[in-house]
Simulated assay, not measured.
Amino acid sequence: MQLQLTSPLDMHLHLREGAMLDLVAPLSARDFAGAVVMPNLVPPVDNLERLAAYTAAVRQATQDHPFAPYMTLFFREYDQATLEAARPHIIGMKLYPEGVTTNSAGGVRDLAAIAPTLELMQHLGIPLLVHGESHGFVLDREAEFLPVYDRLARQFPRLTIVMEHITTAAALDLLDQHPNLYATVTLHHLLITLDDVAGGLLQPHLFCKPIAKRPEDRAALRAAALRAHPKLMFGSDSAPHPLNRKEAAGCAAGVFSAPVILPLLAEFFADHDALPHLQTFVSDTARSVYGVNPPQTTITLAREPWTVPEAYGNVVPFYAGRTLPWQVVERAYA
């Protein structure tokens, strides 16, 4: 049995810098025609010079594949001239509440004070991408942030707002209440719950932010993805960390899923008799929401088993060492 996907897109991806960028970026670029690249580096991508340099580095790391890096700016207060200059080079701006996740120390402290920048973004047609969590109890952080989304969607009705890596049924309910709200969901949040992370021995390579939630939340996310909800896009949130940052006290948050995404999505959709919806979920919806035209690629998957490597360099992938029933068998680039 075979499956073909046209120009798959990953609408939320961490590529890091330096040697890590060179290691992980080709693994995404070989299977995906494009990806939304996150800006939470150290220092963050929050000015035009940094944006140009990072874009060039990503293009260099992915040069062997027809891959479109859709770049983002780290949200802070910007003037109109800067945003006008940045607009042709970015797909959106990424808002992190201060300290809520990896490399977010420079994020937004006062969500009530960001209106002037949001007004400029609405005027210029720059989407707002949000890591939507509070600093409350870990399982409630997304739910506690939902009123912020609700307020912003009402206050800025012409601003495209993307709720990144949603993890709860409540977020899906809110998604349907505002025409300018959209969302991404990850592979790992479709497959695991908190029990997989900490129900037995702690599994550091499954620890991420937002943390995996309850079975009922996963069930709601699965139902929406499998029917290709028209406002829900695939975004892996693949976030590599070296082994010594994951298997350590103070374990870094992030799941490195890039090498296994399409095989596991094919398995998941096939097991639920939903393969006809995978193309929409992993590409078509994102093209419609963002108006992007990625490179023309065709990825062929077959029901042929393979075993996930234990590591790629010094990074352990999602489902390391497991044998998966589907694999990519051909990549055709126009």
Rank of each mutant, 00 (worst) to 15 (best):
Q122P: 00
Q4E: 14
N314H: 04
D64S: 14
D196K: 04
P204W: 02
A170V: 01
P44M: 07
A320L: 05
D273V: 11
R87Y: 03
V289C: 06
P43R: 10
H189Q: 07
Q63T: 04
L262C: 08
H12G: 09
L191C: 12
R303G: 03
R303Y: 11
G18Y: 06
A85T: 08
G92S: 09
Q296L: 13
A253P: 00
T300I: 14
R158C: 08
H277Y: 05
E119Q: 15
H131S: 06
N314L: 04
I192H: 14
F281E: 05
A35W: 11
D217K: 02
P263Y: 10
V308Y: 13
L5H: 09
L95Q: 02
A112M: 00
W306I: 06
P305M: 08
V315L: 01
A253M: 03
L48K: 07
V37M: 06
P179V: 11
S7I: 03
F32D: 07
V308A: 11
T193Y: 07
P97S: 13
A25N: 03
V36H: 09
F137S: 07
L83Q: 11
V185F: 00
D273S: 14
R303P: 01
Q279I: 07
V282Q: 01
L27N: 02
I261D: 00
T168A: 04
T300M: 09
E216A: 13
E49P: 00
G250Q: 12
R287G: 04
I126M: 01
Y182C: 06
L275F: 06
V329K: 00
S283V: 02
V138M: 15
G254P: 05
E142A: 05
K246A: 13
F145S: 14
L174D: 13
T297K: 00
E142G: 08
G313T: 11
L181K: 02
H131L: 05
P147F: 07
R30Q: 15
T101C: 13
